[in-house]
Design a protein around this nucleic acid. Sequence first.
RNA 1: GCCCGAGUGGCGGAAUGGUAGACGCAGGGGAUUCAAAAUCCCCCGCCGCAAGGCGUGCCGGUUCGAGUCCGGCCUCGGGUACCA
Length: 853
Amino acid sequence: MSRYSAAEIEPKWQQAWETAGTFTAQRDDAKPKYYVLEMFPYPSGNLHIGHVRNYTMGDVVARYKLSTGHALLHPMGWDAFGLPAENAAMEKKIHPGAWTYKNIDNMKSQFSRLGLSLDWSREFATCDPEYYGQQQSMFIDFMEKGLVYRKNAVVNWDPVDMTVLANEQVEDGKGWRSGATVERRELTQWFFRISDYSEELLGALDRLENWPDKVRLMQRNWIGKSRGLQFAFGLIDGPTGHDRIEVYTTRPDTMLGASFVGISPDHPLARALEKDNADLAAFNAECRKMGTAEEEMEKAEKKGFDTGLRVRHPFDTAWELPVYVANFILMDYGTGAIFGCPAHDARDLEFARKYDLPVVSTYAPANDDGTALPEDGGEAYVPPKTEPVIYVRGFAGETEQTGEAAIDAAIAFCEANGVGHGVTKFRLRDWGLSRQRYWGCPIPVIHCDTCGVVPEKKENLPVKLPEDVTFDRPGNPLNWHPTWRDVPCPSCGKPAQRETDTMDTFVDSSWYYARFTSPGAATPTVADDAAYWMNVDQYIGGVEHAILHLLYSRFFARAMHACGHLPESAVEPFDALFTQGMVTHEIYLTRDENGRPVYHLPQDVTDGKLADGTAVEIIPSAKMSKSKKNVVDPVTIIEQYGADTARWFVLSDSPPERDVEWTASGAEAASKHLARVWRICTEAAEAPEEGPKGTDEALLRETHKAIHDVTMGIESFGFNTSVARLYAFTNTLQKSQAGRAARIAAAKTLAQLMSPMTPHLAEEIWAHLGGSGLIANAPWPKADQSMLVDDEITLPIQVNGKRRAEITVPRDMPKDEIEKLVLASDAVKRATADGAEVRKLIVVPGRIVNVVL
RNA sequence: GCCCGAGUGGCGGAAUGGUAGACGCAGGGGAUUCAAAAUCCCCCGCCGCAAGGCGUGCCGGUUCGAGUCCGGCCUCGGGUACCA
């Protein structure tokens, strides 16, 4: 074959790997194991280019680790429960399961064309009853360990569709389908006690050295450990049963700056008061119309309602403060009540100015720079807690001290004087896992009038979702299925009802990595296999999962360990994490008659217009998402150029951790380059027996430098720099005059170095040049350190930090000789021609020389 | 709002505090060809005839030396607990 034809060679090598079982995971105690995992995809129907990027990166790591002598586990599955399937069911009258499995089929065939080193024998979907049945079994174990409980929590309620909405389904406070104003509604829901592990999950972050710092920082902030004071304000003439308001504050040092007390509209006191106060009831009702999203809450205009009640300041019973119900205080946080200190909190200041409440600084900058104080119309003064400030209204500790010291002193003072006590709190809340939806893992419990909440017997698992459901009305079909709910109580046998809530899909994705170690087993995991394969050595996925998915997985692994499903060593399931950037794209939309957006696929938009000539609005690049339709289809690229080109293309140019804006140009260039590599490598076999003197040696040195650089790039996730280095090495090989044997050797090494990225082309070159066996199994080349250093180096000469010249010297030339050469150089002579003196001469060996005048 | 990132030629980007722009794309010029495709060679940050000057989002600082470190901003992206 003279021309490189992806269409011919790619299926051939994919078949060869499959026949040889190259990527079938095999335990081998003689080898170190390596478990590489990319976050499994939601089966939306089509691979998009972001998937190609993600899975190609994982594949590079996997193939590289296989070549370096590891027993490899590289599995794939499907995160298959979730909302889009139910939306499809409503829109297209297709069962969510049928839709999902059809999508899986389609995506799997797209996957197979990419030539990924996946062990498909371990594949599963989270919607397989075999998988979710094991999940139900663990849920029951968690119940027994006290890791699960029920409590009331608020949801977004669509009063027209009579259904619960996801935050994403609420647009500007309205239900996305009905357009009705969304209300908050309380439901009894299931929770995991993740907050019991707050301290543990926080502390263990320090040991995750191979995780990105930014992810650890985000998790640390999310868990949000704080030390503060919990104390009570005495309530004057409150309703029966309400004589005090408990508040929690992280800034007890500002207690003398208190200006009001705020309580949540859902606070028991607010609920008690609204019974006799129609205006307050109306205000609270208005607050409850807000969605449940934190973002919405924080951005909304701060509003309060003066209850007319007063509380006494604990330091001075003559000092009274007003009590407001405020829309920005959540019942779920702390005690559902705060004291406002407007001088040192932007939100409280906004509130105080709106309701004309006092603003009193408790501390001021140590160095008065003339900035207006909050009481004089300035901004709230909120310096870092580590910065010393002057306490103008302090009551504990030094006059000048840091916030940290003042907080400690304030807590000690308050405790000594019987005003509350110091408490450590966490921002992390328990994990609400109930979903009022069909397409999820059923929660395996039964509600019995006599016995209460009873877990299903394990021998009856899985509790399967009924197939015969329809989606012609909104809400959860499990609620109105004629027979599914009705079961005898597992405990007393009397008629009872199944729980109709299903589990959050984050539960499904919190343990799939463990299931991959023994996917067919009759228990969630098998101790032996889990011990061998866990942990995931390299986990790869989008940074958008930095908090929730990764934190939930860390909790789940601990809970599984508590129930004997994972060894202690696997409580941190991901040894190393890499968060790749997203592939972004512009969003195209038009508006319907109600002004609501209608999104369009990139392939339907040409020059800013639809086929019928309608102009589209263009929103700048954002994360590709199915709902916004800004997705790019990689199949057309594979069909036109082949998988290797698609793979090469997504690895080139952009650094893996950075977002990349997809543009169609460039695939052509990648394709040309691969054809060129093929040509250069095959031509090596036709080179003259011997080249000019020294050319073999020179090529060998370049080969070893390439091995070193490309390997470093792969190991540090610098795939784009590895690719750049491979371009350079290809150029070197092309220009080399070396003899046949040397060129063949270099070409084979080039093929090996490219094999994790363009595996089909690499196999073809390897076979053509007489390599033995599959290149996938060939041991990774090793760089000879002695080949990496040159005898001569070039040193730039700077004058006052600006480069003026350079000199080439032997690598080991002593410093004083370099100095002599530099001082004698034309550049320095020119610079000192006006009589300037050399004040300093800095020689950084092997790096640079700086002449300071 | 709050938390976390990112910002370098026309474009994607490279650069342990040490020659800013490697490598590639696009563009320009040339070779080959009857012509084209394919391929190969050369040029390519900005201003300037040149000498030289200016340049890594903006302002300031540390340093012999800053894209890189520190402080303050701006813009864009992610997360914000029911999208996955």
